[in-house]
Computed example of a mutant assay.
Amino acid sequence: MSGANPDAARFRHIVRQLQADKQDNPYDWNEPYDVREIERAGDIVFVDAYTTVTGADDRSSHYDISLREALHNWEVKHGVNKSLETQRKVPNTVKLFLNFLEVQDVSLQSVSRRDVYDFIEYLAQHYAKNTVSGHISRLKVVWELAKDRCDVTGDNPFHGHKMDGTSETKKYELFTPSELQALNKSLDEASKDRKLIFLLGLYTGARLSEICNIKAGNIMQAGDHYYYHIEKGKTKDATRNVPIPPELVADTLALREGLADDDLLFSVDSKTYSRWFSVLKSSLVDDSRKVFHSLRVGFSTALKRCDVHERYAAEILGHKRGETMSYGYYAKENEVHKLASEAAKAFSYIKFAWLTDKREEGR
């Protein structure tokens, strides 16, 4: 396989334009064009488009859209509306596929089902089934947009494959109280913002990517309660307002001071923090199933143990729910008050049942 012609976009644009002219005026649509003169001028792309539309010489296969070009179109059309995590994952998957094919770029039309099958076989040797499925799904949507744009024809080669993998995705395990206490104490040596990320994960159950993507302007107040607004996240249900525990408000506001509304609250991205936290955690907890996401599992568990109604748990965690509350930047005071009241139950449970050293408490 080879990369697509760099003039491909212009070729397809001219073809669409000439086809429209031909449809509107089928008898003398080509009268304005002197092909020999255009050829002498060296505009081979136009000549190829012209002969393709006339049927004299179909040159379209020489101007197929490339995978990287299709990715760019996806980023412009759909990527801007996706989470930062998705915006990162789709280009990474495209790069992984091209590396597998050992090319810098490839004609999207030339990708066969066998190419995709072989790619899945390769991925299955290294990744869990869900991860393999995610990679193929991302390539599938890039191809589908190209077909919607009439840049490719035929069946989507990324659709309808059986997925295999090394194993199912690992189940995240809860940190034990002693492990949480050790982590919390160890983070006293870290910067205030890194400690705050940990505590927000612990006490609000937000995903790491959601926390690291909080903007200064997302910190809001409704009545006596502060909350942060998650604009978009892993799923469509991730948009929500999350109450900030009173004990974390001062540090959160201090971090916001001096920032513009569009500035990120934290100076570290989720990928960097995840790696840093993994190293820190490994020195204290020897269990690969226990990661930052385990804090979210813990908060969800605390909500359940405190008998918080599933409706409110879903609102706080960003799980699938009914459209019962509004999720603009400016939440209604009674909405935040109720969410804060329910979240406070889990906050207290985690603080006193898990994070408090009972030996210290009895002294």
Rank of each mutant, 00 (worst) to 15 (best):
Y33P: 08
D34N: 14
R36M: 13
E37P: 03
I38A: 03
I38N: 06
E39S: 15
E39F: 13
R40K: 15
R40S: 11
A41F: 11
I44T: 14
I44C: 04
F46D: 10
F46M: 07
D48I: 04
D48V: 00
D48R: 06
T51G: 06
T52D: 05
V53Q: 02
V53H: 02
G55H: 10
A56Q: 14
D57V: 08
D58S: 08
R59L: 09
H72S: 12
H72C: 07
H72D: 13
W74D: 11
E75R: 13
V80H: 01
V80S: 02
K82W: 00
K82N: 00
S83I: 09
T86R: 15
T86Y: 14
R88K: 10
V90H: 11
N92G: 09
N92M: 13
V94R: 01
F97L: 02
F97Q: 03
L101M: 15
L101E: 09
E102C: 04
E102L: 09
D105L: 04
V106R: 04
S107F: 01
L108F: 06
Q109Y: 08
S112L: 07
R113Q: 07
V116S: 03
V116D: 04
Y117Q: 10
D118K: 14
D118I: 11
A124H: 02
Y127F: 14
N130H: 06
N130K: 10
N130G: 14
V132C: 11
G134T: 07
G134P: 02
G134A: 12
K140P: 01
V141D: 04
V142N: 06
W143R: 00
W143I: 00
L145Q: 07
A146T: 00
K147H: 04
K147T: 01
R149V: 00
T153Q: 07
T153G: 03
G154W: 03
F158D: 09
